[in-house]
Design a protein around this nucleic acid. Structure first.
Lengths: 222, 222
DNA sequence: GTCTATATCGAGATAGAC
DNA sequence: GTCTATCTCGATATAGAC
């Protein structure tokens, strides 16, 4: 947009912008298609067609289809976990380093629930992450299995908040809470809507977060 | 084994037994491989090789790879839901048709948790069903979404047990409980084991069931 | 019913022109 | 950096001999 007197620099900038734009188009289209239809059901051709770019773009910019998936996974996971860590940090500040269970769970659940809002720009990213967890490549599953450093911040906080519980109890309850969270896929919402004959709606994410927090917090009682 | 004087009949019986045996070998091998590696990562060649039968067996006995997956899904789902329905029926009998929340949840969770036991012959079937739920074919997902008649028995029982709650509350809490259940995959157990540094073990399914019931029942309080 | 050989297809990846 | 054309592979499904 800003004019420049140097034609060569202008060309370079435009090329860089085009490159970034193409790469980003692929990234966004792939994320969306993977989230909606699953990794294995989406071909590189589907992605490049949806993005309006050339078939070879995926391999040029990302190396392979697997690497593309992994890069989306990495970026979105980092983004989500940053929001969670920030909330946990704030909860620590408010509570002299030892927040109650509810605030810890809120730090864990609020960011993904925010992303779930119908008009949120990361709505599709959250569905992607949920799918990647069970349908991803071996590399992704391996990261999920071995890289628990992020999750450990939360289990440590919970252990501090409930020193009366055995660590085993705390870990299992965290596992159950994560199960509640990971079940929030479009398909499961659809099923629930059919079962309840339209009496449930996932579009009010504030209410859903409140429901989840209440359920999980109650599970941590006793 | 039992001798017969009729050679022709004997041959027929043997053929029928062979056919049933081959079909069953394919069924069992496919269920195991799908459960361990996912539907898309297992080829018809993998299945027939593991079963020790001919490559063409899958198509001859089941029609297609998709149809094989669907038949496994159908049979195991029916089997599991029969056990659940029986337990719910017994709970009704014990409580003059209106069992408390805990007994309803126990009828829903106990059969799958039993299957999860390390030495249970349906251990792998449960992992298959959990995977099929998220990685299955369109046909399976469609059945899951639209056929809620089995689940409705449980939501109806819960609505009767908690007439003080809004139906919306009941449906959501059932959804959360199912999320806890569906998170019981091998990969998630592995992750939990890493996080807890070996302090959690899913092999004691009686203890796990008790933990899940306590957590879910607490979530239904209030 | 079973098996081998093969038809057919769609996928990811890439060479090489521009 | 981008694009077209193509390579190569692995998959399911099936025809036809036995």
């Amino acid at each position: 947009m800003s004019p420049t007197t140097d034609a060569a620099a202008s060309t370079e900038v435009e090329a860089a912008e085009t490159e970034a734009a193409t790469k980003n188009l692929v990234f966004v289209a792939a994320e969306r298609l993977f989230a909606l239809h699953g990794f294995q059901n989406v071909s590189v051709r589907d992605i490049t067609a949806a993005a309006g770019v050339n078939l070879a773009s995926v391999n040029y910019h990302f190396g392979s289809k697997d690497a593309l998936l992994f890069e989306i996974f990495r970026r979105r996971t980092a983004e989500l976990n940053r929001e969670r860590a920030k909330m946990l940090h704030e909860a620590n500040d408010r509570n002299t380093g030892s927040p109650p269970v509810r605030e810890i769970l809120a730090a864990l659940l609020t960011p993904p629930l925010r992303w779930l809002a119908p008009d949120h720009e990361r709505r599709i990213s959250l569905q992607f992450l949920i799918r990647a967890r069970s349908e991803g490549t071996d590399e992704i599953r391996n990261v999920l299995k071995t890289d628990v450093s992020h999750l450990r911040r939360f289990s440590d906080a919970l252990l501090r908040a409930r020193p009366d519980l055995s660590p085993e109890d705390v870990y299992w309850r965290l596992h159950f809470t994560l199960g509640m969270l990971h079940n929030n896929r479009f398909a499961e919402f659809d099923r629930l809507n059919v079962l309840s004959e339209g009496q449930t709606s996932e579009s009010d994410v504030v209410a859903l977060l409140e429901r989840m927090l209440a359920f999980a917090e109650a599970g941590f009682k006793g």
